[in-house]
Simulated scan of single mutants.
Amino acid sequence: MRIGLDEWTIHHLDISAYDKLDLVESFGLEGIQFADARALSRNFDLGEIREVAAEAKRRNLYLEMGIPGLNFLRPSAKALEAGQGDYMNGLRRMLEAAAATGTSVIRTFVGGPGDRLRRDAEWQLQQRGAIQIAQSLAPLARELGVYLAFETHADVTSFELLRLIEEVGDDVAKVILDTGNFPIVLEDPLAATRRLAPHIIATHMKDCITILTEQGISSQCRPLGTGIVPLADILAILYPLHPDLNLSIEDHEGIYRMDIFKAGWERDYLDIHANDLAWLIEQARLSEVRIESGEISGMDTLEGIPWADQADARIRTGAANLKRILGEVTTL
Protein backbone atom coordinates (compact mmCIF):
# COMPACT_ATOMS: atom_id res chain seq x y z
CA MET A 1 0.00 0.00 0.00
CA ARG A 2 1.26 3.46 -0.94
CA ILE A 3 0.19 6.68 0.75
CA GLY A 4 -0.57 9.74 -1.34
CA LEU A 5 -2.83 12.76 -1.55
CA ASP A 6 -6.27 13.51 -2.92
CA GLU A 7 -6.17 16.75 -4.91
CA TRP A 8 -9.12 18.33 -3.07
CA THR A 9 -6.96 18.56 0.06
CA ILE A 10 -4.92 21.27 -1.68
CA HIS A 11 -7.81 23.00 -3.44
CA HIS A 12 -6.63 26.31 -2.01
CA LEU A 13 -3.50 26.22 -4.19
CA ASP A 14 -3.63 27.42 -7.80
CA ILE A 15 -0.57 25.56 -9.07
CA SER A 16 0.27 23.30 -12.01
CA ALA A 17 0.10 19.52 -12.07
CA TYR A 18 3.91 19.40 -11.99
CA ASP A 19 3.94 21.63 -8.91
CA LYS A 20 1.45 19.27 -7.29
CA LEU A 21 3.81 16.36 -7.94
CA ASP A 22 6.55 18.40 -6.26
CA LEU A 23 4.26 19.09 -3.31
CA VAL A 24 3.39 15.42 -2.91
CA GLU A 25 7.08 14.58 -2.75
CA SER A 26 7.72 17.39 -0.26
CA PHE A 27 5.22 15.72 2.09
CA GLY A 28 7.02 12.40 1.70
CA LEU A 29 4.02 10.90 -0.09
CA GLU A 30 3.84 8.51 -3.02
CA GLY A 31 1.14 9.64 -5.40
CA ILE A 32 -1.90 11.78 -6.10
CA GLN A 33 -5.52 11.39 -7.18
CA PHE A 34 -6.57 14.21 -9.52
CA ALA A 35 -10.21 15.32 -9.70
CA ASP A 36 -10.18 15.34 -13.50
CA ALA A 37 -7.89 15.73 -16.51
CA ARG A 38 -8.27 19.51 -16.64
CA ALA A 39 -5.74 19.62 -13.82
CA LEU A 40 -3.23 18.15 -16.28
CA SER A 41 -4.31 20.01 -19.43
CA ARG A 42 -6.92 22.76 -19.56
CA ASN A 43 -7.72 21.82 -23.17
CA PHE A 44 -7.63 18.05 -22.66
CA ASP A 45 -4.53 17.83 -24.83
CA LEU A 46 -3.70 14.12 -24.70
CA GLY A 47 -0.02 14.81 -25.32
CA GLU A 48 0.21 17.14 -22.32
CA ILE A 49 -1.75 14.66 -20.19
CA ARG A 50 0.57 11.80 -21.10
CA GLU A 51 3.60 13.97 -20.32
CA VAL A 52 2.37 14.59 -16.77
CA ALA A 53 1.63 10.88 -16.37
CA ALA A 54 5.11 10.01 -17.63
CA GLU A 55 6.65 12.43 -15.15
CA ALA A 56 4.69 10.87 -12.29
CA LYS A 57 5.89 7.44 -13.39
CA ARG A 58 9.48 8.69 -13.62
CA ARG A 59 9.20 9.85 -10.01
CA ASN A 60 7.60 6.52 -9.01
CA LEU A 61 4.41 8.30 -7.95
CA TYR A 62 1.02 6.70 -8.46
CA LEU A 63 -1.52 8.72 -10.38
CA GLU A 64 -5.30 8.23 -10.23
CA MET A 65 -7.90 10.27 -12.07
CA GLY A 66 -11.52 11.33 -11.92
CA ILE A 67 -14.45 12.66 -13.88
CA PRO A 68 -17.37 14.76 -12.57
CA GLY A 69 -20.29 13.20 -10.76
CA LEU A 70 -23.05 11.47 -12.69
CA ASN A 71 -25.99 13.48 -11.37
CA PHE A 72 -28.26 14.80 -14.13
CA LEU A 73 -29.75 17.39 -11.76
CA ARG A 74 -26.38 19.01 -11.23
CA PRO A 75 -24.50 18.49 -14.50
CA SER A 76 -20.89 19.53 -14.11
CA ALA A 77 -19.95 22.85 -15.70
CA LYS A 78 -16.64 21.22 -16.65
CA ALA A 79 -18.41 18.40 -18.49
CA LEU A 80 -20.76 20.82 -20.23
CA GLU A 81 -17.81 22.91 -21.37
CA ALA A 82 -15.85 19.86 -22.50
CA GLY A 83 -18.87 18.69 -24.52
CA GLN A 84 -19.68 22.15 -25.88
CA GLY A 85 -22.99 22.08 -24.06
CA ASP A 86 -23.57 18.33 -24.36
CA TYR A 87 -23.20 16.77 -20.90
CA MET A 88 -22.77 13.16 -22.05
CA ASN A 89 -20.26 14.05 -24.76
CA GLY A 90 -18.36 16.05 -22.19
CA LEU A 91 -18.27 13.10 -19.77
CA ARG A 92 -17.02 10.83 -22.57
CA ARG A 93 -14.30 13.30 -23.52
CA MET A 94 -13.23 13.65 -19.89
CA LEU A 95 -13.22 9.87 -19.44
CA GLU A 96 -10.98 9.43 -22.49
CA ALA A 97 -8.64 12.16 -21.24
CA ALA A 98 -8.40 10.61 -17.77
CA ALA A 99 -7.70 7.17 -19.24
CA ALA A 100 -4.85 8.64 -21.31
CA THR A 101 -2.78 8.74 -18.12
CA GLY A 102 -2.73 4.96 -18.03
CA THR A 103 -4.65 4.64 -14.77
CA SER A 104 -7.51 2.18 -14.44
CA VAL A 105 -9.11 4.13 -11.55
CA ILE A 106 -11.57 6.83 -12.63
CA ARG A 107 -13.27 8.37 -9.64
CA THR A 108 -16.84 9.62 -9.90
CA PHE A 109 -19.87 9.94 -7.59
CA VAL A 110 -23.66 9.96 -7.46
CA GLY A 111 -24.39 13.10 -5.45
CA GLY A 112 -22.87 15.64 -3.14
CA PRO A 113 -23.87 17.23 0.16
CA GLY A 114 -27.55 18.12 0.10
CA ASP A 115 -28.57 16.15 -2.99
CA ARG A 116 -30.21 13.41 -0.91
CA LEU A 117 -32.47 16.01 0.72
CA ARG A 118 -33.45 17.95 -2.42
CA ARG A 119 -37.20 18.33 -2.76
CA ASP A 120 -37.24 19.04 -6.50
CA ALA A 121 -36.24 15.44 -7.25
CA GLU A 122 -36.28 12.39 -5.02
CA TRP A 123 -32.95 10.84 -4.17
CA GLN A 124 -34.11 7.55 -5.70
CA LEU A 125 -34.62 9.37 -9.01
CA GLN A 126 -31.14 10.85 -8.83
CA GLN A 127 -29.66 7.41 -8.20
CA ARG A 128 -31.58 5.98 -11.16
CA GLY A 129 -30.21 8.76 -13.35
CA ALA A 130 -26.63 8.06 -12.24
CA ILE A 131 -27.07 4.36 -12.98
CA GLN A 132 -28.35 5.13 -16.47
CA ILE A 133 -25.46 7.50 -17.16
CA ALA A 134 -22.99 4.89 -15.91
CA GLN A 135 -24.60 2.26 -18.14
CA SER A 136 -24.22 4.63 -21.09
CA LEU A 137 -20.53 5.16 -20.28
CA ALA A 138 -19.89 1.45 -19.63
CA PRO A 139 -18.98 0.45 -23.23
CA LEU A 140 -16.41 3.24 -23.43
CA ALA A 141 -15.02 2.35 -20.00
CA ARG A 142 -14.59 -1.26 -21.11
CA GLU A 143 -12.93 -0.15 -24.34
CA LEU A 144 -10.51 2.09 -22.41
CA GLY A 145 -9.81 -0.58 -19.78
CA VAL A 146 -10.91 1.57 -16.84
CA TYR A 147 -13.33 1.32 -13.93
CA LEU A 148 -15.89 3.90 -12.86
CA ALA A 149 -15.00 4.09 -9.18
CA PHE A 150 -17.95 5.55 -7.27
CA GLU A 151 -16.93 7.40 -4.13
CA THR A 152 -18.77 7.02 -0.85
CA HIS A 153 -19.45 10.69 -1.38
CA ALA A 154 -21.52 12.52 1.22
CA ASP A 155 -24.98 11.49 0.07
CA VAL A 156 -24.79 7.82 -0.97
CA THR A 157 -24.88 4.89 1.44
CA SER A 158 -22.92 1.67 1.19
CA PHE A 159 -26.16 -0.22 0.52
CA GLU A 160 -27.02 2.10 -2.36
CA LEU A 161 -23.58 1.64 -3.89
CA LEU A 162 -23.95 -2.13 -3.75
CA ARG A 163 -27.24 -1.86 -5.61
CA LEU A 164 -25.62 0.45 -8.19
CA ILE A 165 -22.76 -1.99 -8.77
CA GLU A 166 -25.23 -4.83 -9.29
CA GLU A 167 -27.11 -2.86 -11.95
CA VAL A 168 -24.13 -1.36 -13.77
CA GLY A 169 -21.94 -4.46 -13.49
CA ASP A 170 -18.89 -5.07 -11.36
CA ASP A 171 -16.73 -5.26 -14.48
CA VAL A 172 -17.23 -1.48 -14.75
CA ALA A 173 -18.48 -0.12 -11.41
CA LYS A 174 -16.20 -0.17 -8.37
CA VAL A 175 -15.82 1.86 -5.16
CA ILE A 176 -13.58 4.60 -3.87
CA LEU A 177 -13.79 4.28 -0.10
CA ASP A 178 -13.97 7.67 1.61
CA THR A 179 -13.59 6.67 5.24
CA GLY A 180 -14.78 10.00 6.63
CA ASN A 181 -17.99 10.44 4.68
CA PHE A 182 -20.01 7.63 6.27
CA PRO A 183 -21.15 9.68 9.29
CA ILE A 184 -22.77 12.14 6.86
CA VAL A 185 -25.14 9.36 5.77
CA LEU A 186 -25.40 8.02 9.33
CA GLU A 187 -23.31 4.89 8.78
CA ASP A 188 -20.65 3.22 10.89
CA PRO A 189 -17.44 3.41 8.78
CA LEU A 190 -16.23 -0.03 9.82
CA ALA A 191 -19.50 -1.82 9.06
CA ALA A 192 -19.78 -0.02 5.72
CA THR A 193 -16.20 -0.92 4.81
CA ARG A 194 -16.92 -4.59 5.45
CA ARG A 195 -19.87 -4.45 3.05
CA LEU A 196 -17.98 -2.68 0.28
CA ALA A 197 -14.55 -4.29 0.74
CA PRO A 198 -14.57 -6.64 -2.31
CA HIS A 199 -15.36 -3.72 -4.65
CA ILE A 200 -12.87 -1.13 -3.36
CA ILE A 201 -10.12 -0.09 -5.80
CA ALA A 202 -9.09 3.29 -4.37
CA THR A 203 -9.51 5.41 -1.26
CA HIS A 204 -9.90 8.80 0.31
CA MET A 205 -8.41 8.31 3.74
CA LYS A 206 -10.28 10.78 5.91
CA ASP A 207 -11.02 11.23 9.60
CA CYS A 208 -13.71 13.26 11.37
CA ILE A 209 -15.48 13.95 14.63
CA THR A 210 -19.19 14.18 15.36
CA ILE A 211 -21.11 16.23 17.91
CA LEU A 212 -24.77 16.43 18.91
CA THR A 213 -26.69 19.66 18.38
CA GLU A 214 -30.33 20.69 18.83
CA GLN A 215 -30.90 19.69 15.20
CA GLY A 216 -29.09 16.35 15.21
CA ILE A 217 -25.54 15.22 14.41
CA SER A 218 -22.79 17.39 12.95
CA SER A 219 -19.63 16.02 11.36
CA GLN A 220 -16.34 17.77 10.62
CA CYS A 221 -13.07 16.51 9.11
CA ARG A 222 -10.03 16.20 11.34
CA PRO A 223 -6.43 15.15 10.57
CA LEU A 224 -6.09 11.40 10.12
CA GLY A 225 -5.65 9.61 13.40
CA THR A 226 -7.22 12.35 15.53
CA GLY A 227 -10.93 11.65 14.99
CA ILE A 228 -13.44 8.85 15.39
CA VAL A 229 -12.75 6.76 12.28
CA PRO A 230 -11.26 3.34 13.23
CA LEU A 231 -8.46 3.51 10.68
CA ALA A 232 -6.51 0.52 11.99
CA ASP A 233 -9.59 -1.72 11.86
CA ILE A 234 -10.43 -0.50 8.35
CA LEU A 235 -6.90 -1.14 7.09
CA ALA A 236 -6.94 -4.57 8.70
CA ILE A 237 -9.89 -5.37 6.42
CA LEU A 238 -8.42 -3.81 3.29
CA TYR A 239 -4.80 -4.93 3.46
CA PRO A 240 -5.34 -8.70 3.05
CA LEU A 241 -7.81 -8.14 0.19
CA HIS A 242 -6.05 -5.30 -1.61
CA PRO A 243 -2.35 -5.13 -0.60
CA ASP A 244 -1.59 -2.82 -3.55
CA LEU A 245 -4.39 -0.37 -2.76
CA ASN A 246 -3.36 3.30 -2.82
CA LEU A 247 -4.28 5.33 0.26
CA SER A 248 -5.00 8.94 -0.78
CA ILE A 249 -5.26 11.35 2.13
CA GLU A 250 -8.20 13.75 1.96
CA ASP A 251 -8.76 16.51 4.49
CA HIS A 252 -10.74 19.73 4.17
CA GLU A 253 -12.85 22.34 5.92
CA GLY A 254 -16.64 22.26 6.34
CA ILE A 255 -19.29 21.19 8.85
CA TYR A 256 -21.99 18.74 7.73
CA ARG A 257 -25.27 18.62 9.61
CA MET A 258 -27.78 15.75 9.72
CA ASP A 259 -31.13 16.84 11.18
CA ILE A 260 -32.13 13.57 12.81
CA PHE A 261 -34.38 15.28 15.38
CA LYS A 262 -36.68 16.59 12.63
CA ALA A 263 -39.98 14.76 12.20
CA GLY A 264 -39.89 12.33 9.30
CA TRP A 265 -36.09 12.32 8.91
CA GLU A 266 -36.08 8.53 8.62
CA ARG A 267 -37.67 8.76 5.15
CA ASP A 268 -34.40 10.22 3.86
CA TYR A 269 -32.23 7.44 5.36
CA LEU A 270 -34.05 4.18 4.67
CA ASP A 271 -30.93 2.02 5.04
CA ILE A 272 -30.00 3.23 8.51
CA HIS A 273 -29.40 0.63 11.20
CA ALA A 274 -30.01 1.41 14.86
CA ASN A 275 -26.52 0.17 15.75
CA ASP A 276 -24.92 2.66 13.37
CA LEU A 277 -26.88 5.56 14.80
CA ALA A 278 -26.03 4.48 18.36
CA TRP A 279 -22.33 4.34 17.43
CA LEU A 280 -22.41 7.85 15.95
CA ILE A 281 -24.17 9.28 19.00
CA GLU A 282 -21.66 7.63 21.33
CA GLN A 283 -18.78 9.03 19.26
CA ALA A 284 -20.41 12.45 19.45
CA ARG A 285 -20.47 12.18 23.23
CA LEU A 286 -16.79 11.23 23.30
CA SER A 287 -15.88 14.04 20.89
CA GLU A 288 -17.69 16.56 23.07
CA VAL A 289 -15.70 15.38 26.09
CA ARG A 290 -12.48 15.93 24.17
CA ILE A 291 -13.60 19.42 23.11
CA GLU A 292 -14.63 20.39 26.65
CA SER A 293 -11.30 19.19 28.04
CA GLY A 294 -9.38 21.28 25.51
CA GLU A 295 -7.81 18.22 23.87
CA ILE A 296 -9.23 19.22 20.49
CA SER A 297 -10.74 22.43 19.09
CA GLY A 298 -14.47 22.97 18.80
CA MET A 299 -16.01 22.84 15.36
CA ASP A 300 -16.75 26.57 15.05
CA THR A 301 -13.31 27.50 16.38
CA LEU A 302 -11.57 25.33 13.80
CA GLU A 303 -13.87 26.48 11.01
CA GLY A 304 -12.86 30.05 11.75
CA ILE A 305 -9.28 29.36 10.65
CA PRO A 306 -8.77 29.67 6.86
CA TRP A 307 -8.05 26.31 5.26
CA ALA A 308 -4.86 27.68 3.69
CA ASP A 309 -3.52 28.32 7.20
CA GLN A 310 -4.27 24.76 8.34
CA ALA A 311 -3.67 22.52 5.37
CA ASP A 312 0.10 22.02 5.50
CA ALA A 313 0.25 21.03 9.16
CA ARG A 314 -2.84 18.83 8.89
CA ILE A 315 -1.48 16.96 5.90
CA ARG A 316 1.80 16.30 7.70
CA THR A 317 0.02 15.17 10.87
CA GLY A 318 -2.32 12.91 8.94
CA ALA A 319 0.47 11.43 6.83
CA ALA A 320 2.59 10.63 9.88
CA ASN A 321 -0.35 9.01 11.68
CA LEU A 322 -1.42 7.00 8.64
CA LYS A 323 2.12 5.73 8.05
CA ARG A 324 2.33 4.65 11.68
CA ILE A 325 -1.06 2.94 11.66
CA LEU A 326 -0.35 1.20 8.35
CA GLY A 327 2.99 -0.01 9.67
CA GLU A 328 1.32 -1.48 12.73
CA VAL A 329 -1.35 -3.24 10.63
CA THR A 330 1.04 -4.70 8.08
CA THR A 331 3.44 -6.10 10.70
CA LEU A 332 0.78 -7.99 12.65
Score class of each variant (00 low, 15 high):
Ile291Lys: 05
Gly294Ile: 01
Asp233Trp: 00
Gly254Glu: 14
Met205Thr: 12
Asp271Leu: 00
Ile228Trp: 03
Asp268Thr: 02
Gly264Thr: 14
Lys206Ile: 13
Asp244His: 13
Cys221Ser: 15
Pro198Arg: 00
Ala263Ser: 12
Val229Arg: 05
Gln283Pro: 08
Leu231Thr: 14
Leu224Ile: 14
Leu235Glu: 03
Asp207Thr: 03
Ser219Lys: 00
Ala191Ser: 14
Gly254Leu: 09
Leu238Tyr: 12
Trp279Pro: 01
Trp279Asn: 06
Leu270Trp: 14
Ser248Arg: 08
Gln220Glu: 10
Ile234Lys: 01
Val289Ser: 06
His199Asn: 07
Pro240Gly: 11
Ala263Pro: 02
Arg222Leu: 09
Arg222Met: 14
Ala308Tyr: 04
Ser218Phe: 00
Tyr239Ala: 03
Glu266Asp: 08
Leu302Gln: 10
Pro189Arg: 01
Val289Glu: 15
Pro189Gln: 01
Ile255Met: 04
Arg285Pro: 05
Glu250Met: 11
Thr301Pro: 00
Asp244Ala: 11
Val289Ile: 07
Asp244Thr: 07
Gly304Met: 06
Ser287Tyr: 01
Pro198Met: 02
Leu224Arg: 07
Ile249Ser: 08
Leu196Glu: 08
Ser287Gly: 10
Phe261Cys: 06
Gly216Ile: 02
Gln215Asn: 14
His273Tyr: 12
Met258Thr: 13
Thr193Ala: 15
Ile255Pro: 07
Ile217Trp: 00
Leu190Ala: 03
Arg195Leu: 15
Cys221Trp: 13
Ala263Gly: 08
Ser287Ile: 01
Tyr239Trp: 09
Leu241Asp: 13
Arg267Met: 14
Arg257His: 07
Glu292Tyr: 01
His273Asp: 11
Trp307Pro: 10
Pro243His: 12
Leu245Asp: 10
Leu247Glu: 12
Ile200Pro: 06
Gln220Thr: 05
Gln283Lys: 15
Ile281Ser: 09
Leu190His: 09
Gln310Thr: 12
Asp312Ala: 12
Ile305His: 02
Ala202Asn: 12
Leu277Trp: 10
Lys206Leu: 13
Glu250Asn: 06
Pro240Cys: 08
Ser297Trp: 09
Arg285Leu: 08
Gly216Lys: 03
Ile305Thr: 09
Asn246Ile: 05
Ile291Glu: 08
Asp207Glu: 09
Lys206Thr: 11
Ser219His: 03
Asp259Trp: 01
Asp251Trp: 09
Pro230Trp: 04
Tyr256Leu: 13
Ile217Leu: 10
Ser218Trp: 01
Ser219Cys: 12
Pro230Tyr: 07
Ala191Leu: 11
Asp309Glu: 05
Leu270Pro: 14
Asp244Ile: 02
Leu286Glu: 15
Pro240Asn: 10
Leu286Gly: 05
Ile305Lys: 07
Trp307Val: 04
Tyr239Cys: 06
Leu277Gln: 08
Met205Lys: 10
Pro223Ser: 00
Ser219Phe: 02
Ala192Cys: 12
Pro243Ile: 06
Arg267His: 13
Gly264Ile: 15
Ile291Pro: 10
Cys221Ile: 01
His242Thr: 06
Pro306Asn: 07
Met258Asp: 04
